[in-house]
Design a protein around this nucleic acid. Structure first.
Length: 695
RNA sequence: GGCGCGGUAGCUCAGGUGGUUAGAGCGUUGGAUUCAUAACCCAAAGGUCGGGGGUUCAACUCCCCCCCGCGCUACCA
């Protein structure tokens, strides 16, 4: 294997259109962080790069929906994600963002560099244009009637009903999903990156060169792509949000997100090390590792490397350990259905319990196939492994040492095998020592191979072996007859605890800190490094060293804690089995004049809070376009205040004000009532401006 | 539709150029124990290795077909 001087580790740039959930963490950030911690423990030169991916149509549309500018939109999510990462303890050297100046510059330089080499293709074609919004529409933002099956809402790339693939021009009566209007065809010019020219090179580099060292899922996906034959990919878009194309006649053109986003790794490194960044990207003695989810394989293994190759001078990823996906309680994680465990919410609900989440996510890490996170599993793993095996072992050793030696590490002189009992102890010691070294070796080996599940298992194995060593040698019994033997046993037990403190750093950083405190070992750094160099047990805590006070490392997860979390996932009212009421009869006929008396409008919820002493009412502040008013709405059992904020709602604006529970309600929110009594909001399919009338 | 990855004990996963009783941890059950967060330690039960067919003296491991999950992709292998 090639020797490298340093390592550049990147973790996929999260898209700045929503908060982070455990799927993101398990997929890329946690394995990356674990790996980087491991490298740092070994004293290696490593940079750990990440940042928010802030461009693309989805951002502009998301911003429009929230009624804010794209910049405000990404500012919000960038801040949210950055804070969550920091709070969770993911140790990026830099968490940057693609909307900043350094990145724009870097991405433009990349484009210009490759452009000047004459590699890009340039082509003009007709594309649908939304005249009202003044934007060209991506395929999936166009709907229309499917030419094959007649389905009225087929997307521009595929009909969901009959499954045929389409191009937008095949759609009958195309409509823009952004404005609802009929788009028109307009010629537009774009630049293309000729991936096909890199096919042979990619074949050699990946299919031949990385057959054995890349994960099979990654390799298979790449090979499949390359075998299919590669096509030029367009790398520009008509949009006013993004990195503008650095050509004189290219106003209104930006780089396509997938072109600029991976370059974000480089810009972030530049920002981190304005003078020294190049050696992390251009020195062949640097190893580049991308941690990503499986949806990103083709960008990181094929397209981005080809771009780097085209740019010249750059190193290529040495490995791309992509993970599969994480499910939640048997279902796909879904932002829109709120079927997710949000990182910032976990951190708020479980303060001081970051290791627990790390531990569980690593133990089910989707390394070879999709995995499933369940709260029950979380509880069981924490309680039976972290608490019972790891935490308990440390606690037993600490307590025993305080009990018999006042917290001073007993001397480590070798025990003379003078009695039968002592001979047995020596046997147990030898066995434990052998098993421990094997586990340490296997742990480090697995870390090198990105097999974090296995590595962490071996870590816990150290505690398992430690527990067995104590059970086998029974120092609490010997205390009555042979204190020298007790001292020898505990000295070794403390050695195990010390090595655990060292070894758990990449996986359980908070435990590492707590253990250092308990062992009173903050000054042992230089010595402890030896563990990672020798790859075997070291004499971590010297004899006669005074230990700190024992403290429990972890506490059990109680039933009610996870029940709360599980309840959070369910839609309100979903588990209630109410009798299905009959459809309500039609009301008597009215005239159009009756109807026109109603002033129905679209408003936007600015704030929402529960009403005191009411289990049905939410107090909402609603922007009706012309004013902001307070409306009390009896929907508290169907929507949480958090869910309501930012939502568009349909309301009756000219209803006479009415006092409820001491507060005046100035209007009424319209709701659909399902046959089971469940209330659902009426929301315009596409966002409209507050104050829009309904008729 | 095509391609890729996966489908092994209740759960999370190992494994195998085909070869005696398919492994581990957790969970469960029983026992032992008390230093410890009713924890630890020992033991047992649990699987016709997604289904069907084939090759073979012998397949969970190789070949073919099918089913299921996830991803990628589009009339192209």
């Amino acid at each position: 294997m090639k020797k490298f001087k340093r390592t550049t580790v990147t973790a996929a740039l999260p898209y700045a259109n929503g908060p982070l959930h455990i799927g993101h963490i398990a997929g890329a950030y946690l394995p990356a962080d674990t790996y980087v911690r491991f490298l740092r423990q070994r004293g290696e030169d490593v940079v750990f790069i990440c940042g928010s991916d802030e461009h693309g149509v989805a951002i502009t549309l998301g911003a429009k929906k929230e009624g804010v500018s794209p910049k405000q939109f990404v500012d919000k999510y960038h801040a949210l994600m950055q804070k969550a990462f920091v709070d969770f303890g993911i140790g990026f050297d830099i968490y940057s963002r693609t909307s900043n100046a350094t990145h724009h510059e870097t991405a433009r330089e990349f484009f210009t560099n490759i452009y000047n080499k004459g590699i890009f293709l340039e082509e003009t074609s007709d594309q649908y244009f939304d005249e009202q919004e003044q934007i060209f529409l991506a395929d999936r933002y166009i709907v229309g009637t499917c030419p094959t099956c007649g389905h009225a809402n087929a997307y521009g790339d595929q009909c969901e009903k009959c499954g045929t693939s389409l191009s937008p021009k095949q759609l009958i009566n195309p409509r823009s999903t952004v404005s609802g209007k009929t788009p028109v065809l307009k010629p537009t010019r774009h630049w293309y990156f000729p991936l096909n020219l890199f096919e042979e090179w990619l074949k050699e580099w990946i299919v031949e060169g990385h057959k054995d060292d890349w994960k099979i899922n990654v390799y298979g996906q790449c090979k499949s792509w390359i075998d299919q034959g590669l096509q030029p990919r367009s790398i520009t878009r008509d949009l006013d949000w993004g990195v503008s194309v650095p050509l004189p006649d290219a106003t209104g053109k930006v780089l396509y997100v997938w072109f600029d986003a991976p370059i974000g790794y480089i810009s972030a490194t530049k920002e981190l090390k304005p003078d020294g960044w190049e050696k992390y990207w251009k020195d062949p003695e640097t190893r580049l590792i991308h941690f990503i989810g499986k949806d990103n394989i083709v960008f990181h293994c094929i397209i981005f490397p080809a771009i780097l190759k085209a740019a010249g001078d750059y190193i290529l990823p040495d490995n791309v350990p992509a993970n599969e996906f994480l499910n939640l309680e048997g279902d796909k994680i879904s932002t829109s259905r709120n079927h997710a465990v949000w990182l910032h919410e976990y951190l708020a609900d479980f303060p001081g319990r970051r290791d627990e989440l790390r531990y569980v996510l690593t133990s089910i890490s989707p390394e070879t196939k999709d995995a499933d996170f369940t709260w029950k599993d979380y509880q069981q793993k924490v309680n039976s492994e972290l608490v019972s095996i790891f935490g308990n072992f440390v606690n037993r050793v600490m307590v025993l040492t305080w009990k018999y030696f006042d917290g001073r590490v007993p001397s480590e002189e070798e025990l003379a095998g003078t009695t039968e009992k002592r001979i047995k102890i020596l046997d147990h010691y030898k066995k434990a020592h052998h098993d421990l070294n094997e586990a340490v070796g296997e742990m480090i080996h697995a870390l090198n191979d990105f097999r974090f599940r296995e590595a962490q298992f071996q870590l816990i194995n150290l505690a398992r072996i430690g527990n067995k060593f104590l059970a086998d040698t029974e120092p609490w019994k010997l205390a009555k007859e042979d204190m020298e033997a007790v001292g020898s046993i505990l000295n070794y037990a403390i050695t195990i605890v010390g090595n655990l403190a060292i070894a758990c750093d990449p996986f359980l950083p908070d435990a590492a800190t707590r253990l250092r405190k308990q062992l009173n070992s903050t000054s042992f750094d230089a010595k402890w490094k030896q563990f990672w160099v020798k790859e075997q047990l070291i004499n971590a805590v010297p004899q006669h060293h005074q230990l700190g006070q024992p403290e429990l490392l972890y506490k059990n997860v109680e039933d009610d804690e996870i029940e709360k979390q599980i309840a959070k996932l369910r839609k309100p009212g979903m588990e209630e089995t109410k009798p299905v009421s009959a459809l309500k009869p039609l009301k008597p006929e009215i005239s159009i004049d009756d109807f026109s008396k109603l002033d129905i409008r679209i408003g936007k919820v600015l704030t929402a809070e529960r009403m005191e002493k009411s289990n049905k009412l939410l107090k909402l502040t609603v922007d009706t376009g012309s004013d902001q008013r307070t409306i009390l709405s009896g929907i508290a059992q169907h929507y949480t205040p958090e869910e309501m904020v930012g939502k568009q709602v349909t309301l009756i604006a000219n209803l006479a004000p009415r006092k409820m529970m001491g507060i005046e309600s100035q209007g009424m929110i319209l709701m659909a009532e399902d046959v089971d009594g469940k209330l659902r909001l009426l929301i315009p399919v596409e966002a409209v401006s507050p104050g829009s009338t309904v008729s």
